[in-house]
């Protein structure tokens, strides 16, 4: 952070501790301001008065969530569907992406198809898939796979295509067999790109799972949120939304860590 501040010519605060206190002071002020705004918009004259619960109630509901059995069932179902879909999408996407990266002719022929499929809003597939699969775990997984396979595929293709000329010469000079080149040269070379694909796909997996659960009302966080909203338990609904946010944040942290560990062996400037 200091390095960028120096590079961009911005004045750098010298007293780190003082700045930190200043930052935390402003953060506190911001939180208080937002809490005040929230309470203000619950005032009787506000149109949202009945929908916004007191902040304290949300806190109580959030603290009570771990005591509810259905919370754990919902988190488990959401994570289960998201991760199952992610795993399948990862295997499929990396395999297909490698294939497309190795065979430019096939990549060219399928480019339009991939672009079309990638641009498809996945939730648009729900009605058709409901007809074919019913509303259950398989449906959610299929939707997650359809959403998450593309970042893996595209990133792997980009990473695998184009071997560095020097490496190509070495590989040719030593007559390294093709499968070994794929495994030991091309895939490691593509790992940073695949890591980025993983990070994008993980965030998507959670969003898509919760979205699907909200629409088709299958067990999971999305369903909990919708049920709480429909039964007017607004504090509980906000607590579930917060839980979903924390889950998303945790997944993001994990994904960034995974991406980093995939690229650790590489010099930093390449990734």
């Amino acid at each position: 952070m200091t390095a960028t501040a120096l590079a961009t010519g911005r004045p750098v605060a010298t007293a780190g501790a003082r700045t930190r206190r200043l930052v935390w002071g402003w953060r506190l002020a911001l939180v208080l301001l937002l809490a005040g705004l929230w309470e203000l918009s619950r005032a009787p004259w506000s149109p949202a008065a009945e929908l916004l619960p007191p902040l304290a109630d949300i806190g109580v509901a959030l603290a009570g969530l771990p005591l509810r059995a259905e919370t754990w069932a919902a988190v488990g179902a959401t994570l289960g569907a998201a991760l199952t879909g992610l795993a399948i999408a990862g295997v499929l996407g990396v395999a297909l992406g490698t294939l497309l990266g190795l065979l430019p002719a096939v990549a060219r022929a399928t480019r339009l198809l991939v672009e079309l499929a990638r641009a498809m809003p996945v939730f648009g597939l729900l009605p058709v898939c409901i007809l074919l699969l019913g509303t259950g775990f398989p449906l959610t997984v299929v939707i997650v796979v359809t959403a998450c396979v593309w970042p893996f595929l595209v990133q792997t293709r980009l990473g695998v295509a184009g071997l560095h000329p020097q490496l190509r010469d070495v590989v040719r000079a030593y007559r390294v067999p093709r499968p070994l080149v794929v495994r030991r040269v091309l895939l490691p070379q593509a790992l940073p790109m695949i890591g980025t694909g993983l990070r994008i796909a993980l965030a998507m997996a959670v969003v898509v799972t919760i979205g699907t659960e909200t629409i088709i009302q299958s067990t999971g966080l999305g369903e909990r949120i919708a049920i709480a909203e429909r039964s007017g338990a607004m504090a509980l609904m906000f607590a579930y939304v917060l839980l979903a946010a924390l889950l998303g944040l945790a997944c993001n942290v994990l994904a960034v860590a995974a991406e980093r560990s995939l690229t650790r062996w590489r010099p930093a400037e390449v990734g």
């Binding site: 919760i210 979205g211 909200t214 909203e229 979903a244 998303g248």
Partner: peptide
């Protein structure tokens, strides 16, 4: 935190 919030979760609200 706001970025990580799955926006679809806000639709019912």
């Amino acid at each position: 935190l706001l970025r990580a919030t799955p926006k679809v979760a806000l639709i019912p609200l």
